[in-house]
Each structure stands twice: as C-alpha cells, then as structure tokens.
Nucleic acid binder design. Structure first.
Lengths: 222, 222
DNA sequence: CATTTGACTGACCGATCGGTCAGTGTTCTA
DNA sequence: TAGAACACTGACCGATCGGTCAGTCAAATG
C-alpha cells in the first residue's frame, strides 16, 4: 500500500512483549503480513522498532508468535456436546450457533487464519492450524458418528461431509457477510443467530417439500 | 517475504501489456498485492520495470486492471438453468457441479477475489465484485423462487439462504481442500464432483433419518 | 526522406524496508 | 555496593521498494 495511516499507540497494559504481540496481531489480521512494517507495529505498541527485535528475533518469528498465541486458546469446548443427552438436532443447532459466534467474536484470529490458508506458505503455520483444526474437526465427526449409531442421523451420509458443510457455512458467512449485506434478497447478513437457525433447518430437513407436513424435530427413537 | 524465488519469464504470446497483465495476475493471485514487486512482475513478463509503468500508471492501476480483466469474463451462464424443464433437483445439482468446476478451473481469479474480500479496501474493487456477484446471486435466487412457485421447493425456506449455502459450500471447498486432504475422515477433498453430489443430496433431503425410505427425487407435482 | 509516435530500456531517485549495534537506564542479586 | 541481567533506545546499514527520466530504436505517417 502506498501510505499507511499514522496509528496511535494502543492503550494496553502489560509488559512490552505482550503489547507488541497485541499490536502485531491487530495489524497482521487487518492488513496481512507483507503490508505491515515493523515500524508500524512498534508505533502501534508504543515502543521503539529495535525493541521489537529485542523480544522477537525477526518479523517472521513475531508473526509465528502471533499465530501461536491466536491458536493457543482456540480449543473450543466440544465436550458438552459429546456428553449431552438432548435430541441430536438441538445439540447440532447449539454447535452451529456457538461455532459461528466463536468465529465472529474472535474475528481478528479468524482473519489471520483465513489469510494463512490463502497464502499457504508450506512451512509457516499451516501444519499448526492443521493440528488445531484437525482435532476439532475429528471430534465433531465423532459426535456425528455417534448420532448415526443412535439412529438420530441418516447412516448414508458422510459425517465428515456434514461437518465440512456446517463449518463451511459459518466460515463463508464470516467472510462474505460484508458483501451479502448489499444484496437486496439477503435479510440475514447482520443476524448470525438467524443464519445459524436457517442453516440447521435446511441441513436437517432439506429443502424439498415434505410429503408429511409438521414433524420437524425429534427423530424416531433408535 | 524475505526473498522471492527468481522467476523465469513466462512463455506467453501477445503484446507487452498483455504479457504484463498475465504475469501480474499470476503473481498477485499467488502472493497478494503487497508481496509482489513491480520488478518481479516485469521479470516474470520478460520486460523491463520501466515498461510496466509505460503501460500502467502505477502498481495500483495495474492491480485494478488485473481485477477488471479477471471479472470481465466471469459472467457465468445461468440461462440454461433458468429455461430448463428438467426436475428441480437435477437442475440444482447441475448448477452446483458447474459452479464448483468453474471456481476450480479459474483458481487464480478465485484466489484474487478471495484476497480482495479479505483485504476489503473500500475503494478498490469491492464494488466491482459486488455488482458481478450480486447479479449472479440474484439470478440464482430467482431460479429458486421459480422452483418455490412451481412447488418443487419448500416455500418456508429463504431462497437467498439456499443460494448462500450452496455457493458457500463450494467456496469453502475451494479454500479448505488443501487442509481437508490431511484429515483422515475426509475422503472427498480431491473429488469435487463427489463433493458436489453429496452437498446437493444433503441440501435436498436433509440429514435426519427418513421415516419413508426410498423416494429420493421427483417431488410431487404442483 | 524527414518527422512523429509509441514501445521499450538502463540508470537513477528518495523513501522505506528488515535488521544490527553500541550504549543508557533500571532492577535484581551476591 | 559492585555488577550482572535485562528492557529499551537512536542511529545506522545494505537492500529493495514504487516511480521517474532521458534516450534508443522501429514502425507508421506526411
């Protein structure tokens, strides 16, 4: 970019290295790795440029530290879904809603990771994201498999496919909602909860007309 | 990025400005705006750096020219779906498959646009993409509305929501397939046609167990 | 044939890049 | 209290950035 707007130092407590990390996360998420200079990060954190290199050996190392910090507390809690005995549709709806809210709340991290997926530098942090997401993904798949075993879910659908569609719907909402807002047909761009509900409704019951009306929830007992 | 690999000039016929555009599209799509230097583009196109500025007034202007060229022929043909009289599920399945193949074939353009959505520089090209996609999106919504009017589609689902879910599923497949390949549960990461079929199956019929087995297609006549 | 036009180039510009280094001030400890 | 350890800074480095400019060369134009 030609010029970068002069950024005021952020008001964040904590030692210097932490403030640098926060500032770097903010700027990397907003503008991307290459568009952010060490000078800008230092100014945003209210420290000198040399101080950045005192705490982090290089720009790359700082970026990786930001990613690691971002992924650290990303261990979303799926346990309460695994040991929940409510009907499957309700559990799935809860997951979808919580997952979408999780993404929206931590939008900086989400943007960082989306950038990382787009850049796909093989060495950098792809393997890290792979493990973090792979674990969560695998657990969601296991929950779906359990649902199949209990007869609460069609046995002729691929659980990994259901998980992909669910997560994809949320990720796409996150990245396209700014665009969707300007489409006259779209009324849900600013209402993630409604988006979640509609997604789950369509995923559960499909979009074809039902021969038998009513009967929306509560699948037959196994 | 610390160092950029020395790029051999691409072997492309045409006048200089066209070769510059092709080279710039390739590099911008692969590495992003800020990570690509005019020097790299010039070397990749086999011309001098000054020549790039002879044809384009600035790096920004070149980038916008690349985006414009990319969006130019992006007018995907949805007409044959609008005037197709086969059953609705088949038409929808065709759209999903064609749309996904379209995305995968033109992966450079897709990556460019995904980057643009991530960077969301308000001035640059967001409004352009907005119009291009808005038109296509609106036409898909209209097709779905027609399906509702003919009783081939549930009337209590939001057509814009169906369109979003369908396009989102494909976009997410595009951007996550490299990651999905490494998940042991995922068997469809390298088979877009199968992904499309499974998506449409789930979207049409839902994932709940069907009380009445069989009867997969052909909705009741209006 | 003289001139203009436009594609094209090498050399160069100031600014900024990531990164280094000698040195300053504070704080903890022996 | 001496001094090691540490957080931190301003000045500086070579490289590269986007962009400029004077000039070369070939084709079109009168």
């Amino acid at each position: 970019m030609p010029q970068q707007p002069t950024l005021k130092p952020i008001s964040v407590s904590g030692d210097g290295s932490e403030r640098i990390l926060v500032a770097a996360e903010e700027l990397f998420a907003e503008h991307g790795f290459d568009a952010v200079s060490i000078n800008a990060i230092a100014a945003h954190a209210g420290v000198s440029k040399a101080n950045v290199f005192h705490h982090f050996s290089s720009k790359e190392a700082l970026y990786i530290a930001v990613l690691r910090e971002a992924c650290r507390d990303s261990a979303e809690n799926l346990d309460h879904l695994q040991h929940d005995h409510r009907p499957f549709p309700e559990r799935l709806a809860d997951f979808a809603r919580e997952h979408l809210n999780h993404i929206l709340e931590r939008h900086k991290v989400t943007r960082l990771i989306q950038r990382e997926m787009l850049y796909n530098h093989p060495g950098r942090a792809q393997d890290m994201a792979e493990k973090v997401f792979g674990d969560k993904f695998q657990r969601l798949v296991q929950i779906l498999r359990d649902g199949q075993a209990r007869g609460e879910l069609r046995t002729d659908v691929d659980p990994a496919m259901v998980a992909t569609l669910l997560i994809g719907a949320n990720v796409f909402f996150f990245q396209a909602r700014a665009l969707l807002q300007h489409f006259p047909d779209v009324t849900f761009a600013t209402d993630p909860d409604r988006y979640s509900r509609m997604t789950i409704d369509m995923l559960l019951h499909g979009i074809l007309p039902r021969a038998a009306a009513g009967n929306n929830d509560s699948p037959p007992a196994p």
